[in-house]
């Protein structure tokens, strides 16, 4: 029973991955929108883009980690 609950929790935690996907899409989409308006400024901001994506993605990875912990460590 307890294990089944853990599996349900893992599934719920995986929702966070979808949320992180929305976040990453937001970052990349807004970057693209800005880059198309002012292409000359885009090249200098790719590093910022990747940092933003990394921060957004890290939280998704945290939820993935929680899911894994519930699956294997509980």
């Amino acid at each position: 029973m307890e294990g089944q609950l853990a599996h349900i929790g893992a599934g719920l935690a995986a929702i966070g991955s979808g949320a992180a996907a929305i976040g990453v899409g937001n970052v990349a989409g807004n970057f693209l929108a800005g880059a198309l308006r002012n292409p000359s400024a885009a090249a200098g901001q790719t590093a910022t883009l990747f940092i933003g994506i990394a921060f957004a993605e890290a939280l998704g990875i945290f939820s993935f980690l929680v899911a894994l912990l519930l699956m294997f460590a509980v």
Partner: peptide, 8 residues
């Protein structure tokens, strides 16, 4: 890993 959830 919980033992009850997996098959044999």
């Amino acid at each position: 890993m919980a033992t009850t959830t997996t098959d044999a």
